[in-house]
Design a protein around this nucleic acid. Structure first.
Lengths: 382, 382
DNA sequence: AGCGTAGATGAATCCTGGC
DNA sequence: TGCCAGGATTCATCTACGC
């Protein structure tokens, strides 16, 4: 593994044509090119890599400071690399690097790009305009996203990945069997759940995170396992702290990283050097735990298992409450809240399991609403 | 509920200006306009609806329905002219109907558009270019998606919705409390799970489905509950078999549907006629505190719920403060101010909710003064 | 050692009404 | 238009520390 500071400054031994500044015959495999990604890709030969994984800046456009309800400060992404003058400037940047990426990809290669609603529509639109053929969009559902502290929107709990081939008729690699095995013999779906990158995996220096947006290795692992073969070449034009390189090394794929910031390059080098080829046990630990799906009471209302206006009672019929459109319960005395909250309030208890406390009338008598939840699960789970 | 076949052919009684072909003073509420959606929206007054929900076609095999490229520049990057042509036509069509939608929306209104990877990137990109401000993208995770029979890709198990306001500074309706109640007291996330539309809900004629992409009512239910108020006007420019109308009627919102195909119009009419509005009381949702009557802390002192001289502390008893006659707090260190200000000052935080920060001693232990406010509200509200 | 609790934190376009 | 002040607002996970 080496680091090439700039193609133009590469040592004479490096296989670069001085006039064209292009890599000849041999690619800078398993090394980091420290340079702007568009320039660096221009120096790579056409049709030379099997996959591109790209995590470009999202163009977040954050406002002022944000504080949590407890008053603490939210550490936002304020880095210069995420600043663009305008939406159209971002658009131009996106089209420029995607065009180079397309040139560098083999005809049977595929590209992956990750983003959020801030940028993914611009990315996807450019991908289609450039002639790529979208194969799937994949949702990374975050197990532990940051909440919406001000209660102004839905919790932004996912990111989107686009997977595309070189064209409508292009061939591509998809390891269907691997994915099905990884998913307990069920077809792998387009929504994947992983925790955000934290704990031991998160790179830190002097106690602070090295990169603000480090991606979990599990995500890259699934991407590479699904869409490359051992020995394939994976290019990451926004290498950051090298998640792509670390996973590629473990999965015995070749990688090329492009990254402008020296600090990130250094951290990536160290990290990848320490990465070990995969062993069996690691495979199992990479899998997201299968957990019983959680069903909110409101879901039963939305899906018609229980209608707004229905009356619930406790098992002893001491209290009656009416179901509201949003799944709230309103008792005759005027108190209102969720099934759990109202149950607790009426009993004067600190907490209450609304699922077993509240009952509804059925032809077979009073039944806990928990039975409705079971019915819903049976109907919707495979 | 009525059906207007075409604005130009509307009966004389209809409030349409013959020269401008526009609706005047009165909107065609709770009715279906059978016409092309762009023309039909042109006839509606500007800034007249509170929400637009759109489920546009995403079939890229364009027929005569979609506008041809209107002189927009030709990008020479692609070599597949057929595909570029249809992609460009779809783009033009998308921008045309979105521009009309924007004109028709109130300044504080919001738009929802649903789509899949075939079209959602074009839609989102156009939404941003037109000046809308994306608030969230929402993932509808299908509980029971159709499998990928060929095993060539990931199972396409979700669709994407975009929710946007009229601009960065625009206000919008978001019933945060309702969503949190609906989700068992956890913030509603950006990924929603619903089954696909089937069973009794799926409209059928002679045993075959009436519409190929009928959306589940549960989806529209959550959208409307989250982002509209009772009595609001919801416009659906791609009405299909009227899911939007049926849900709007149940939730006591007004609706306007635009649909070109007579067969769908007929099915929608029948369906919506059969839908029953929910009882007034059931439509009541959980109120955000700021919509509840405001109670000043001083009021609690004036009315004797808390006496001047009472001592308050934070939950960890790190700070003590005495209640003044005017509802001011004075800490032992001499700092003074409103319950909010003093809390913020002592913690060194930018702000503080005094109602939950300050506690008072009760026989049951330390309790936040917010409970006093609840008691006061229960005692004084009808 | 093991358990329980407190504190920190993550790609976030994060307030509103009155003067 | 901006400024000021009231007051509303968080979930899952990991680490550190004390008992």
């Amino acid at each position: 593994m080496g680091v090439i500071e700039k193609v133009a400054k590469a040592p004479q031994a490096a296989p670069v044509d001085v006039r064209t500044r292009k890599w000849v015959d041999v690619l800078p495999l398993d090394s980091i090119i420290q340079q702007d990604c568009i320039e660096a890709m221009r120096a790579l030969p056409a049709a030379s890599v099997d996959m591109i994984f790209a995590d470009p800046p999202y163009n977040l456009q954050l406002g002022g400071d944000l504080a949590r309800p407890d008053g603490s400060h939210v550490d936002a992404v304020t880095d210069d690399w995420d600043k663009f003058d305008s939406l159209s400037a971002y658009d131009a940047f996106t089209r420029a690097w995607l065009a180079e990426a397309r040139r560098v990809l083999k005809p049977n290669g595929t590209i992956w790009v990750i983003g959020s609603y801030h940028n993914i529509f611009k990315v996807g639109s450019a991908i289609q305009d450039l002639g790529f053929w979208i194969l799937n969009d994949i949702i990374w559902r975050k197990a532990n996203p940051m909440p919406n502290f001000k209660g102004t929107r839905f919790t932004n709990a996912h990111e989107t990945l686009i997977w595309a081939s070189m064209g409508e008729k292009a061939k591509y690699t998809f390891n269907y069997r691997s994915m099905k095995t990884l998913n307990d013999e069920l077809q792998m779906r387009s929504d994947w759940e992983f925790p955000i990158c934290g704990g031991q995996e998160r790179l830190k220096k002097n106690g602070t995170k090295v990169h603000p947006t480090q991606k979990p290795e599990a995500l890259l692992y699934r991407v590479m396992l699904a869409c490359t073969k051992p020995g394939d070449i994976v290019l990451d034009p926004f290498f950051g702290t090298g998640t792509t390189g670390a996973v590629a090394k473990r999965l015995r794929r070749h990688w090329i990283g492009i990254e402008r910031e020296g600090g990130y390059v250094e951290a990536a080098q160290e990290r990848i050097a320490a990465a070990l080829p995969l062993d069996e046990s690691a495979v199992t630990t990479m899998q997201a735990p299968r957990q019983a799906p959680r069903v909110a009471f409101g879901t039963l209302v939305e899906t018609g298992y229980l209608n707004p206006g229905a009356v619930l009672t406790d098992p002893k019929r001491r209290w009656r409450a009416t179901v509201g459109v949003d799944g709230n319960l309103r008792s005759e005395c005027g108190a209102a809240g969720s099934i759990h909250k109202l149950g607790a309030t009426l009993q004067g208890a600190p907490s209450c399991n609304g699922w077993t406390f509240w009952h509804h009338e059925t032809p077979e008598g009073l039944k806990p609403i928990d039975t409705l939840r079971q019915t819903y699960l049976l109907a919707t789970q495979p």
